[in-house]
Design a protein around this nucleic acid. Structure first.
Lengths: 247, 247
DNA sequence: CATGCTTAACGTATTTTATACGCTAAGTTT
DNA sequence: AAACTTAGCGTATAAAATACGTTAAGCATG
């Protein structure tokens, strides 16, 4: 309508904490903040994939758009976990300057809705990442980040760490076929401590929705492990109301 | 600065789902939406306590302000649980008209951050509630509500239902001294099914942080129950890293 | 081609926790 | 005094978590 008006709301944004599992570490996908004139910023910093929200766009829709542009993937796991709205979260001079230059409007305050998403790291999405200046980083060794993005990542990690214990989120991070060792390692890195392999295995295989395949690992210098897959349908059928409670 | 500008951001709000437990039902505190000209609206509707956010105000600060104005209470339990930002959530003609009249600005879209809070229903806060047109409603029998407030309450309830099973939230809803029956009834209404009293009692009393008092119920037409209290310090000391997980 | 190395995979014994349900106790009401 | 109601304790059984010993299947090496 009014050509002065940008087609996004300068007060609202979304940011995505995209987690991936590379077989031994939990990683998060970050983009390099480009310099104001297109050239790399002097103080190189990373940021979370995110964007201001278009005027008639849904929050979750905006998150999906950002994910699609970055990875080329649709239908990936996405969960809102928190909002960050301190009036001073954009206070850092350099970061604010960058945001105003790239958006073209004066920024008073931006409230960002944070999502975490879970994806499988493999060849199919590596291509897009490279073309978007995106790189995977170990969540335990984060590079310098803009704004309060470090706090956002840590809170997202906290949410994941909590929720993976009660929901089948692990299968969003694992390949379609996986070994017992892979899923155990994933749990270990996410919840942060070692688990007994014999008991883990026992508990895992009791679950009828984790099905053995006929296929084994190949080319490993030890006894090859059997592959399993997650049967989502069986999982949903086997769910009963959880009665567990504590004080 | 600019006298045209309101001292709040017309895009950002908070809403509070305030839960209370009256001994047998879970209740939620709602305010009656006043009519546009001060007189009761024709189509009487209720709404969640909430407000637009002041320009330099924190989200949680805004929630605390709303709670303080409504109940006169400080330091009450408050937890952010979701954001509601669909572009059309304010689409209802009547509701939108009301909001524009009372705020004095044109409303395109409001993203609201939803908090739930837990309070003890007793005499000390009844006074303020009355002066603010606030009333308690059974969460199972909600009156007609403005905007998407019904969906917000239901999502808040879902969060509470989930989180009360792993955190000591029940003590925020109970009086300082309570009986085993009271805490069990609270669990039953929140999680939605009956529990075996004998086993519940056993599990409860194993917890060292739930301490028996010397005092008993009086004036009840049956064997009087012993009162207990929650020892927060002991609770925190007894916490160990939860190792429990599932797939 | 036998030996060692590494991780997979199975089993068993013990402890802890959850579930099911019977019974007595201490008040009030009639 | 008998009936009624909820409090409060106990016991037996089933299920789940924990601890840890042992064998199996592949590859790498001399």
């Amino acid at each position: 309508m009014n050509s002065q008006k940008p087609n996004f709301n300068p007060h609202l944004s979304i940011d995505c904490v995209i987690f991936g599992f590379d077989g031994s570490r939990l990683r998060v996908l970050l983009v390099e903040r480009m310099g104001i004139n297109g050239d790399p910023a002097e103080n190189k910093k990373h940021k979370l994939p995110g964007d201001l929200i278009h005027l008639r766009e849904d929050l979750e829709g905006a998150a999906k758009r950002v994910l699609m542009e970055l990875t080329g993937l649709e239908n990936i796991f996405l969960r809102q976990f928190s909002v960050f709205g301190e009036p001073d979260r954009i206070s850092d001079g350099e970061d604010k300057h960058w945001l105003e230059e790239t958006s073209g409007v004066t920024i008073d305050r931006v409230v960002t809705t944070a999502y975490y998403s879970l994806i499988r790291i493999d060849k199919s999405n590596t291509v897009n990442e490279l073309s978007n200046n995106a790189t995977w980083h170990n969540v335990k060794k984060l590079p310098p980040l803009t704004f309060d993005h470090k706090a956002i990542i840590l809170k997202g990690l906290k949410s994941l760490r909590n929720e993976i214990r009660f929901e089948p989120l692990c299968f969003e991070l694992l390949p379609g076929k996986f070994t017992v060792r892979q899923i155990q390692t994933l749990y270990e890195v996410v919840i942060g401590h070692k688990l007994d392999n014999r008991n883990f295995r026992k508990k895992l295989l009791k679950a009828c929705y984790i099905e053995p395949l006929k296929e084994k690992q190949k080319g490993v210098a030890h006894k090859p492990a059997l592959y399993y897959r997650f049967n989502k349908k069986k999982y949903e059928e086997s769910r009963t109301d959880i009665l567990y409670y504590n004080f």
